Amino acid sequence: MKVNLAAQTLSNSVAEAMLFLRDDVNNEEFLECSGTVRFIKTMEKQYRLFKQITKCKWNSYAENPGLAITITSMLGIYEQYVKTEKLRYLLTYKCSRDHLELFVCSIRARNGWNNNPSPL
């Protein structure tokens, strides 16, 4: 798949067209498109951020764009849940892969070391 085709499909203009078809044209096929519109707008923001970071030679994030995307994602989660008081605080370490690995290791260690563990 070509990136430019995906970028065109997940662009703000597509989201706005869907909202136009829902609100102004009253097309029944687009009545429940708000989730898709939100997804498209989020993906476009991430794409723009990634594109901006990789173009910037002086930015320290240019060598590791994954770090910038992770920071942006955490800020988005913070704004969506903590600022709206759905959560009191955000434990960012629980969103990392390391935390999941520790959890899986604790489950595996429950029955002691075993080369061929059983489902129990």
Rank of each mutant, 00 (worst) to 15 (best):
R108M: 15
F30G: 05
K2W: 00
S73G: 12
T84A: 05
N115G: 09
K45M: 08
K45R: 14
L90D: 09
K45I: 08
L87H: 04
V37C: 08
M1N: 03
K55N: 15
R108H: 04
Q52I: 02
F20A: 06
D98A: 09
H99M: 07
F30N: 08
M1R: 07
L10W: 05
E63R: 13
C33F: 00
F103K: 10
P119H: 05
L75G: 10
L102I: 12
A17D: 04
R108I: 15
Q52Y: 01
Q52R: 13
R88D: 13
L102A: 12
R97F: 11
L10H: 00
N64I: 13
P117V: 13
K55H: 11
K86W: 03
E79N: 13
N116W: 11
F30V: 08
W113N: 12
A7C: 05
N111G: 14
K2I: 06
S34A: 10
I71Y: 03
S96R: 08
I71H: 07
Q46T: 12
V37E: 01
Y81P: 01
T9D: 06
Y47M: 10
E44G: 01
S11Q: 01
A109C: 11
A7D: 03
Q46V: 14
K45V: 05
V37P: 08
I77P: 03
I40E: 03
L102G: 11
F30D: 01
A7N: 05
S60N: 09
I77C: 10
I40T: 08
C95D: 09
F39N: 14
N26G: 05
S106W: 02
C95W: 09
G76T: 13
F103V: 14
Y93N: 09
S60L: 08
D98R: 13
L10A: 07
V37A: 03
E101T: 14
R38I: 10
I77A: 10
V14W: 01
Q80S: 14
F20R: 08
T92P: 03
A62Y: 05
T9G: 12
L67T: 10
K41C: 08
I69G: 02
W113I: 15
V25C: 01
I53D: 00
Y89N: 06
D98H: 07
L10T: 06
N4F: 09
I107L: 14
R88L: 12
Q46R: 06
A6F: 09
I53K: 01
W113D: 06
L67P: 00
V37H: 01
